[in-house]
């Protein structure tokens, strides 16, 4: 479990986060949603330790992350996998070398064992046989899947995903969402996804946190989103008239049943 406690973050005079506290549960897909500029990415980067908060604490299973020394932070980070918005695959390495990188750096496995592990990860993300391709030779959706394969290669306890669906078509986005959810359930991972993709919210939102103007404005799950009376959340999720009509129809159908 990851717990954030009263997180504040300012950049010069601009206060981006204004006292956010929440818990992220293991075995669940925890979503952070909100408009652009709501502070989602800053919050995610604070959770993962890439940005230091102005004040507040982050606990990994009751361990205060920002009080740890470098060695202890490295130990925690070896239990963390992260999928970046742009996949962040190393251009000069093949797909296999990208996925193998954490193993090369930190494990004592033989090359054959590492290759087995890489192949297992590639099969898990439905991408067998692309080992020798370079990131520039595969599509954006495939790059995301390679990013997921690299994130899970060390069997992480915590998985962070920053906008996993950005730039993908709806069908591929759904596949990525399902893949992340399946991996989360299979390995009981604490998964935190930063997104503003409404399909993700409605499909895999086990635990949703809505940030608005640097504050936690709403919490719930995908079923509760539909019935929410929070005006900010409604105007964010059901932004178009088409989605508003869908919501009305869905609520009517629900009340009839």
């Amino acid at each position: 479990m990851i717990r954030a406690e009263n997180i504040f973050k300012s950049f010069d005079d601009n206060e981006v986060l204004k006292g956010i506290s929440m818990e992220f549960l293991p075995g669940k897909t925890n979503l952070i949603i909100g408009r652009s500029g709501a502070g989602k990415t800053v919050f995610l980067k604070i959770l993962v330790g890439l940005i230091i908060p102005t004040s507040g604490k982050v606990y990994y299973d009751d361990i205060d992350f920002f009080s740890l020394n470098k060695k202890q932070i490295r130990e925690i980070r070896m239990q963390v996998g992260m999928l970046f918005q742009g996949s962040a695959l190393f251009d000069s390495m093949t797909v296999e070398e990208n996925i193998r990188f954490p193993l090369d750096m930190f494990s004592n496995m033989s090359l054959a064992e590492k290759r087995d592990r890489v192949n297992w990860c590639l099969e898990r993300v439905n991408l067998p046989g692309v080992n020798d391709k370079y990131p520039s030779e595969i599509s954006g959706g495939m790059q995301k899947r390679v990013g997921i394969a690299r994130a899970i290669v060390l069997s992480p306890k915590y998985l962070f995903c920053d906008e996993p669906n950005s730039g993908l078509d709806p069908r591929t986005a759904l596949l990525i969402d399902e893949l992340i959810q399946d991996i989360t359930y299979e390995h009981n991972i604490t998964t935190i996804i930063n997104t503003h993709d409404m399909n993700s919210v409605m499909e895999i939102g086990d635990n949703i946190a809505f940030l608005h103007q640097g504050r936690l404005a709403w919490r719930g799950n995908k079923d509760q989103v539909l019935e929410t009376e929070n005006e900010e959340l409604k105007s964010f999720i059901f932004a178009s008239p088409f989605l508003q009509r869908l919501r009305t129809q869905a609520l009517a159908a629900k009340s009839r049943s």
Binding site: M82, A88, F106
Partner: peptide, 14 residues
């Protein structure tokens, strides 16, 4: 800029 350094940091690489 392409978050490669962040990706390595997250892996625990110095």
């Amino acid at each position: 800029q392409k978050e490669h350094i962040d990706a390595m940091e997250i892996m625990g690489v110095n």
